[in-house]
């Protein structure tokens, strides 16, 4: 599974403080720790408290790119920040994210094309987050349709069914798993699928346990990618065991360390 590390996010107090104080060492060590723990890419979000989000985003990007060489997923709702950020990237970037609203989607598809980036597309629109599987599929199909019109390969689209908290929408979680499976059937080549994992346990107890249970189930439904906390060791270990069960990686007695070693760059 393609892992995007979520920890460089200004919503975390320590990260917000590091951004405000330009604490390069803190940010860089957080980047390195995530990559060592198995992140294939890192999400970058300067958080709601940022006074100058553009300057902060560019500082974060430079800071991270100085120390690790993975892809970065730029997590901002502001288009100008996204564009300036993409222009700054050394590796193929990931746009996080667009909704299914046509005006917005079209702008981001063009941006992704211009900067050769992947695009995370949420299956939601102005009407809000879907309440069932069919609506999710409908929005996903409309995203892929627009992408095709813009000549953008489904290979570079990550469809996000939007994971809802277990204590808010328990009855929807299985439908989300089914959507993850069914998204793949909507185009050839298939789009990729992604979830923001931590959402599922927002406000719940035993978050790590809930996160890892869902992740291994989602892996079985064919999930390609997740934004998560790679420093959560039980979570990563469950994923590794899950990929063995799914025959995606070959078992050996030291399967956990083998997986980690194989990921090392």
């Amino acid at each position: 599974m393609f892992i995007i590390g979520e920890l460089i996010n200004g919503m975390y107090k320590k990260v917000a403080k590091a951004i405000a104080e330009r604490d390069k060492i803190y940010i860089q060590s957080l980047a390195q720790l995530q990559v060592e723990a198995g992140a294939d890419a890192l999400d970058v979000n300067c958080g709601p408290l940022s006074r100058d989000p553009l300057v902060d985003m560019l500082w974060l990007i430079d800071c991270i790119q100085d120390t690790v060489s993975v892809s970065l997923s730029l997590d901002t709702t502001r288009q100008n920040i996204m564009e300036e950020g993409l222009a700054r990237l050394k590796k193929k970037g990931i746009i996080n994210s667009t909704s299914a609203d046509t005006e917005r989607l079209e702008v981001y598809l063009e941006l992704a094309k211009k900067y050769n980036a992947s695009l995370i597309a949420l299956t939601m629109d102005k009407k809000g987050v879907p309440q069932d599987k069919d609506r999710r599929l409908e929005l996903a199909a409309s995203i892929l349709d627009t992408a095709q019109k813009h000549n953008f390969s489904p290979n570079d689209i990550y469809l996000d069914p939007i994971l809802l908290p277990i204590n808010v929408a328990q009855n929807q979680l299985f439908a989300i798993l089914e959507a993850i499976r069914d998204f793949k059937l909507l185009s050839a080549p298939s789009p990729k699928t992604i979830v923001g994992l931590s959402n599922i346990s927002q406000g719940a107890k035993d978050r790590s346990l809930i996160n890892r249970s869902f992740l291994t189930m989602a892996a079985a439904f064919g999930l390609d990618s997740a934004i998560l906390d790679p420093l959560d060791e039980p979570l990563m270990d469950s994923l590794i065991a899950g990929e063995n069960v799914l025959n995606k990686s070959i078992y050996c007695d030291n399967f956990v360390s083998a997986y980690k070693k194989s990921k090392k760059r």
């Binding site: 070959i250 078992y251 050996c252 007695d253 030291n254 360390s257 083998a258 070693k261």
Partner: peptide
């Protein structure tokens, strides 16, 4: 194949 991988590790 499992032992081949294990031994390489």
């Amino acid at each position: 194949v499992n032992i081949a991988k294990q031994l390489n590790i």
